[in-house]
């Protein structure tokens, strides 16, 4: 077999990788906002739950989480198919790291903005969504970009719960051909290209956001 013959199976795997990555990033983003906002809520129970979630998923290895959801959870009667397990686990992890980004950016909105909002009698919810969030979201974009690439890299681990992603296809090909150097080089390049694409998209979104309103902070940086 030559390297051109590896392309078809690897591309099929790449498709699975991209699907799992995008799905878990999308769900993870929702979790990140929910948990990040809950963390700064004045409701102790809400912020406590968010804190526990973030600490648990940030504090334990992804592979352990993945095996736990895949091997251990079915033993107490809860089981999903591998792809769902992979997406859910990755989303939970990305959401936990993202929650810290969301919280950090919201906390960094200057106190003066909150005081101005108070003086104009805006409610707390209104202040969060219309004053703090539009300013904070731009500061979230660069760390979100890093998290997205981290998520993509982490998807490689789902090959270990029998999902036919890019890494899994590479492993299968190697087992048949023993042509390790070519196959793994191609696989690494595949991930690199997807990562570059992901970074490009996020940079584009960030630029769009920045160009909208004229931000004093962006003007200086």
């Amino acid at each position: 077999m030559t390297w051109t013959q590896y392309l078809a199976p690897l591309l099929k795997g790449a498709q699975v990788t991209v699907t799992i990555s995008l799905a878990s990033i999308a769900i993870g983003a929702i979790l990140a906002f929910a948990a990040g906002i809950a963390r700064i809520s004045s409701n102790r129970i809400l912020s406590g739950i968010a804190f526990a979630y973030v600490a648990l998923f940030r504090g334990t290895p992804l592979l352990v989480q993945l095996f736990w959801f895949y091997y251990a959870l079915p033993l107490i009667g809860i089981s999903f198919d591998p792809v769902t397990t992979g997406i859910v686990t990755l989303a939970l992890l990305t959401g936990a790291f993202g929650a810290e980004v969301v919280r950090g950016a919201l906390v960094a909105v200057p106190l003066a903005q909150h005081e101005a909002a108070r003086a104009l009698n805006f409610s707390r919810t209104y202040t969060l969504w219309h004053i703090s969030m539009p300013q904070a979201i731009i500061e979230m974009m660069p760390p979100f970009g890093n998290l997205a690439v981290q998520n993509l890299k982490d998807t490689a681990l789902v090959s270990l719960i029998s999902i036919a992603d890019l890494t899994f296809q590479a492993q299968s090909l190697r087992n048949i051909t023993l042509d390790s150097a070519t196959i793994y080089t191609m696989t690494l390049l595949g991930y690199f290209i997807i990562a570059l694409f992901l970074m490009f998209v996020l940079r584009f979104v960030e630029m769009k956001l920045r160009r909208g309103p004229a931000f004093p902070r962006s003007a200086h940086s």
């Binding site: 003066a112 903005q113 005081e115 101005a116 009698n121 539009p134 309103p213 931000f215």
Partner: peptide
């Protein structure tokens, strides 16, 4: 909220919202 309906404030550092016209 009821108290603030009668009072407004102008700040030393303006505190305009940077993301709004």
């Amino acid at each position: 909220h009821k108290i603030r309906c009668n009072v407004g404030m102008v700040f030393q550092s303006f505190n305009l919202f940077p993301h709004m016209t």
